[in-house]
Measured scan of single mutants.
Amino acid sequence: SDIKVHVGDITVELHNVSEEFARLVEEALRLGLNEEQAKEWAHKALH
């Protein structure tokens, strides 16, 4: 599904992702990663 993740003043739109993936992206953003890094990190975490 499509999910918007908000962290501080950052909003990341995720398309066709699981809630778990979105949660991992949100966690990575909170750790200070940028959007691209957060998506990559979440992807690796799920595989």
Rank of each mutant, 00 (worst) to 15 (best):
S1N: 13
S1E: 14
S1K: 10
S1W: 08
D2L: 09
D2E: 09
D2V: 15
I3D: 09
I3C: 03
I3Y: 15
I3A: 02
I3G: 06
K4P: 10
K4T: 15
K4G: 10
K4I: 15
K4A: 13
K4M: 14
K4N: 15
V5Y: 03
V5P: 06
V5N: 06
V5Q: 03
V5T: 04
H6M: 12
H6S: 15
H6L: 07
H6C: 08
H6T: 15
V7I: 11
V7Q: 05
V7A: 07
V7N: 05
V7C: 05
G8E: 08
G8V: 05
G8Y: 03
G8H: 07
D9L: 13
D9W: 08
D9Q: 11
D9Y: 05
D9H: 11
D9K: 03
I10D: 05
I10V: 12
I10E: 06
I10W: 06
I10F: 08
I10K: 04
I10M: 10
I10A: 06
T11Q: 08
T11W: 15
T11V: 14
T11L: 11
T11Y: 08
V12W: 02
V12Q: 03
V12L: 10
V12K: 01
V12M: 09
E13D: 11
E13L: 13
E13F: 05
E13H: 14
E13C: 03
E13N: 12
E13Q: 12
E13G: 05
L14N: 04
L14Y: 03
L14Q: 02
L14T: 04
H15G: 10
H15N: 10
H15S: 09
H15D: 05
H15F: 08
H15E: 07
H15Q: 11
N16L: 07
N16E: 07
N16P: 03
N16Q: 10
N16W: 06
N16V: 05
V17S: 07
V17R: 03
V17G: 02
V17H: 06
S18W: 01
S18K: 07
S18P: 06
S18V: 05
S18D: 06
S18Y: 03
E19C: 06
E19G: 09
E19M: 15
E19W: 15
E19L: 15
E20H: 12
E20P: 08
E20M: 11
E20A: 12
E20Q: 14
F21W: 05
F21A: 01
F21Q: 02
A22N: 06
A22G: 09
A22V: 08
A22I: 07
A22S: 07
R23E: 09
R23Q: 12
R23W: 10
R23A: 15
R23Y: 10
L24S: 03
L24T: 02
V25W: 03
V25P: 00
E26Y: 12
E26N: 06
E26G: 12
E27W: 10
E27I: 14
E27A: 13
E27Y: 12
A28R: 01
A28K: 01
A28W: 02
A28F: 06
A28M: 06
A28N: 02
L29H: 01
R30K: 14
R30L: 14
R30E: 06
L31G: 10
L31Y: 12
L31Q: 13
L31F: 15
L31P: 00
G32F: 02
G32N: 05
G32V: 00
G32T: 01
G32W: 01
G32Q: 01
G32L: 01
G32H: 03
L33G: 01
L33N: 04
N34V: 03
N34D: 14
E35N: 06
E35S: 11
E35H: 06
E35K: 10
E35V: 15
E35L: 14
E35I: 14
E35P: 04
E36Q: 12
E36P: 09
E36M: 14
E36H: 11
E36A: 01
Q37W: 03
Q37K: 10
Q37E: 15
A38T: 00
A38I: 01
A38R: 00
A38F: 01
A38L: 01
K39G: 02
K39Y: 11
K39I: 13
E40F: 08
E40M: 12
E40D: 15
E40P: 00
E40V: 11
E40A: 10
E40S: 09
W41Y: 15
W41I: 06
W41S: 08
W41V: 07
A42E: 00
A42D: 00
A42M: 01
A42N: 00
A42G: 02
H43F: 15
H43T: 14
H43R: 11
H43N: 12
H43I: 11
H43P: 00
H43Y: 14
H43A: 11
K44Y: 12
K44G: 12
K44A: 14
K44P: 00
K44M: 13
A45S: 13
A45R: 14
A45Q: 14
L46G: 08
L46H: 09
L46M: 13
L46I: 14
H47W: 07
H47M: 14
H47Y: 10
H47F: 09
H47I: 13
